[in-house]
Design a protein around this nucleic acid. Structure first.
Lengths: 221, 221
DNA sequence: GTCCCTATGTGATTTTTATCACAGACAAAC
DNA sequence: GTTTGTCTGTGATAAAAATCACATAGGGAC
């Protein structure tokens, strides 16, 4: 059951919910529940069954693949207004998760039980269309990712990563490495190279982009 | 417009179509058209807009990402009974293709125009569920692929590729390399290694798997 | 048979990435 | 201040892949 304040926040983040019929909207609010997860929580993990459909109010989820040797690679990030398509996939395909989701910051989310999810999907065009779009976008992202991992060198991928974050970037080299699926030392060395080119300025847990045009040129080479 | 014989073949490959209402089924058959494509045809390509929803009757489609330097990587294969989810993604997300599709053999397919696709999706639970499942499966495949490309060595990926094909395998090393996103010489050398282990026997355009258990063990190391 | 095209084998070399092993640097805690 | 823990820099080395440059071999066309 969702309280009024949360309901309005939910509708703000997910405008498509406004298009649901009043009755369905009420049913959703009745069936759903709010969860608070501290940063670092494993929201879901590989091989785990699905709980329900998450709607993020604040914070976000890093969805990653972890290798047996401890390395990891970020598949994508779920932000408020989106939902974890992986979960939809589980719910729709009746399979289990194939990746791990980790709360990056403290997180509030509304969890829609599987049954309610299926009901909405069957009855509400707006909801269906929303889910289809999510699938579509994710598929595109993943194909891009595969292509990048297979064909691009790490320096280009790193440059890309940097220019897609707001400068100054607050992150350790390890975090960047995990996002790229590589090792910390490599990222450190590449960053040093960028710094020597005058593209970035490095500090502890901080990277200032000083020549984003050059970085972009390099990334798209 | 689809003739009777083709209709029955279509229903055989796509049993879910039987669950459509008679009227919708008739509408589908009226709106759709049959296409014959010779092997090697580029069925769709990156940045191209979507024509419609393909239903394969025979042959199959290799969906690949091509790198600027000529290398390529197979994302997945579409076989009769499946449909190209990438197309659904385009139709639903109103975007363009993000990969290339190539007819591997001569191909017959039924093309469902975008409008008919959307109608069916809105009206028919069975069709919707079919499309959702396709999405779900593909997403899973792609995540596996990303993980493999990022974390596995080529020898393991090659072993995996081999054991998932019926022996004897008829393919040039170049074809295998393209499937893995690597170079021919590497594949040749790795295959030689496998042959030395007694796992395969090599011939011109032919690979006989002589110890699939060992290959499997190696692949899953 | 010869010619020719494609497929394969292979050495040599380079590039890229990973791994290991520390040293130094910085910031917060005490 | 000192201590402590995390973060970063860096050399040395190894491993994996890619690249280049041919040699050879098989199979069909003639």
């Amino acid at each position: 059951m969702i309280d009024n304040h949360t309901q309005s926040r939910l509708l703000q983040q997910y405008p498509m919910l406004r298009e649901l019929s009043g009755a369905d909207q009420a049913e959703l609010m009745a069936a759903a529940s709010v969860m608070h997860l501290p940063a670092g929580t494993v929201v879901f993990d590989e091989n785990q069954p699905c709980q329900g459909f998450p709607l993020l109010l604040s914070g976000n989820i890093r969805v990653i693949k972890a290798a047996p040797n401890g390395r990891e690679l970020q598949l994508y990030r779920v932000i408020p207004g989106e939902s974890c398509i992986l979960t939809s996939s589980c719910l729709l395909g009746h399979t289990r998760y194939h990746a791990r989701g980790i709360a990056e910051q403290d997180m509030e989310m509304v969890l829609l039980p599987a049954a309610a999810f299926h009901t909405l999907l069957g009855r509400q065009e707006a909801f269906r269309s929303y889910v289809f779009h999510l699938f579509s976008d994710r598929l595109t992202d993943l194909m891009q990712l595969v292509s990048a991992v297979a064909f691009q060198k790490l320096d280009q991928r790193l440059a890309n990563l940097l220019i897609n974050k707001p400068s100054p970037i607050h992150a350790t080299h390890q975090v960047l490495a995990d996002e790229l699926g590589s090792a910390r030392e490599i990222v450190s060395r590449l960053l040093k190279g960028f710094a020597e080119q005058g593209w970035v300025k490095l500090g502890r847990e901080q990277i200032d982009i000083t020549d984003s045009a050059a970085l972009k040129r390099f990334a798209e080479l």
